[in-house]
């Protein structure tokens, strides 16, 4: 049986790890390589590193990051941020990253998914999707009930730009084009520490045959249990709860085992 995966996510800007609440108000949480090694030793199953540096030498900084992490880390890791071409992906994978994550670039140019899958194999192509639930009745902002009258729409640029892409149609298209994995962040849940978007995740699981990484909303260990059991997620990604030691990975693994969730 395949284990459920715990994936700390490191947001990296100018070589340092940061994490914002709802992507604004960034806080500093240390050196990415040291933090990556620490998580690996504690039992993290995989890492995601998102480079949010905005410079003209973007590819160079991402490749440097991939190289430094690959030299030190003995578990798999994904690099995201600023990868928008086959050449970018090649440079990062060649440096030692196991997977690359693409988000806006895939929405703007869906053929990129096909090109990356053909060139490097689906197993290293993660399509990251940020989405918000939009209700037909605009007075409703958030509800776990009455979800029939809502649709999830893909958003770009950290949730600032709404697209016309419907979430479930988009992830199915991504799979058909060759994505090996979906990293789904609910913008409604991200930063709230109130739990993952398990209803949407379970629905996504029912329409896909590739693994799904749940992201956005982890506040405690029960939330992670719930996304595995109720959301049917294959992996759970979180940042601040790990960076600020609100949850330790060994404690989390112990708790999940007691709850009957298969983990390493």
């Amino acid at each position: 049986m395949l284990s459920k995966r715990i994936i700390p996510c490191l947001d990296i800007k100018d070589g340092r790890t940061v994490k914002g609440v709802n992507f604004v108000g960034l806080r500093d949480a240390g050196d990415p390589v040291e933090l990556a090694k620490l998580y690996a030793e504690q039992g993290a199953d995989e890492l995601v590193l998102l480079d949010i540096t905005a410079t003209h030498e973007k590819r160079k900084t991402v490749v440097e990051l991939a190289t430094k992490v690959a030299e030190q880390l003995n578990i798999p890791f994904t690099i995201g941020g600023g990868i928008s071409s086959v050449e970018d992906a090649h440079a990062v994978l060649n440096a030692g990253a196991d997977k690359i994550s693409i988000n806006s670039a895939a929405v703007k140019n869906p053929q990129l998914i096909n090109d990356l899958a053909e060139k490097f194999g689906s197993q290293c192509v993660v399509v990251a999707v940020d989405a918000k639930q939009i209700f037909n009745d605009p007075t409703i902002q958030h509800s776990t009930f009455n979800t029939q009258n809502s649709k999830w729409f893909v958003h770009l640029n950290g949730g600032r730009i709404k697209t016309d892409l419907e979430l479930f149609a988009w992830v199915q298209e991504a799979e058909q084009r060759g994505a090996g994995e979906i990293l789904f962040t609910s913008m409604d849940h991200d930063g709230t520490k109130a739990g993952f978007a398990d209803e949407a995740l379970a629905k996504m699981n029912s329409v896909l045959n590739i693994p799904i990484i749940a992201s956005g909303g982890a506040g405690n260990m029960e939330h992670i249990r719930n996304t595995f059991i109720n959301g049917k997620s294959d992996a759970a990604l979180a940042a601040s709860i790990f960076h600020f030691k609100e949850i330790s990975i060994p404690d989390l693994k112990k708790y999940l085992k007691e709850e009957g969730v298969l983990v390493r």
Partner: peptide, 26 residues
Amino acid sequence: LKVPHMGWNGTTNQEKNKVFNNKNEQ
């Protein structure tokens, strides 16, 4: 089941081997 088979999984030893002698670890 989902393909690719991606993630951590256990193995069982078929026979004693000098290289592949992992004990139920993933």
